[in-house]
Write a protein that binds this DNA or RNA. Structure first.
Length: 204
DNA sequence: AACACGATCTACT
DNA sequence: GTAGATCGTGTTG
């Protein structure tokens, strides 16, 4: 065995501490965590700076509002898995499933500050400014190469996973969720007010 | 089997 | 500010 030692950074921790937490707690803790797609030995990742909660059949904006279907089945499963679906026939959106088995809930990841593999992100996203590479739920999945194949991935063990790199999170803003016409009374959109490397995020 | 629609984004005006 | 892209899903026939 070679004894050559390079100064390897400490292995980034998989983030699993959220599995048993209420969705709104997961929402709060999601900011500052790192969404990773490790593929073909390459890591593409970003720090989560914007996310939204969708909780229960009583939440009219939640995909589970009309009860369980084949599509939203992941929401009803155990926490810790990805719920990926195609929106508007164009964009893949990635959620982290929350709440106990049988109760639907998830956190939608809406924006990242690019961390690793930015060159690959640029290639996937085409000629857009760096600041907009990962802002928007459909844009970040394109940048990370996340699609329907990753639906129901275990976010602790799969190529698509959540890690805690210890990024400090400052104050968090809570505002109405975006792109929905119902359930806008709930302030379940969380945004980080402190920039990490780049913001790429604008209020509307 | 056919159809309407959506937790969006971009490119126009 | 708003039209258009584009397709899986749920609903209807």
């Amino acid at each position: 065995m070679s004894t050559t030692r390079r100064s390897k950074p400490p292995t980034p921790r998989i983030w699993t501490g959220w599995h048993d937490q209420p969705t709104l707690t997961v929402l709060k803790n999601m900011l500052g965590k790192v969404l990773v797609h490790a593929q073909r030995g390459r890591r593409v990742s970003g720090v989560i700076i914007e996310a939204e909660a969708y909780i229960g059949e009583d939440d009219p904006a939640c995909h589970a509002a009309a009860g369980p279907t084949r599509r939203n089945a992941p929401l009803y499963g155990p926490p810790g898995f990805a719920y990926v679906y195609l929106n508007y026939g164009l964009h893949y959106l990635v959620n982290a499933v929350t709440e106990r088995d049988g109760f639907p809930g998830a956190v939608l990841i809406r924006a990242l500050a690019p961390l690793e593999g930015i060159d690959l992100m640029r290639r996937r996203r085409g000629p857009v400014p760096d600041a907009r590479i990962c802002n928007g739920p459909g844009n970040l999945t394109q940048a990370l190469g996340i699609n329907l194949r990753h639906n129901l991935s275990d976010l602790a063990t799969s190529a698509v996973r959540l890690e805690d790199h210890g990024f400090p999170v400052g104050p968090i803003d809570y505002s109405p969720r975006i792109g929905i016409r119902v359930g806008t009374d709930r302030l379940w959109r969380a945004t980080s007010t402190t920039p990490f490397t780049m913001r790429g995020h604008e209020e509307r």
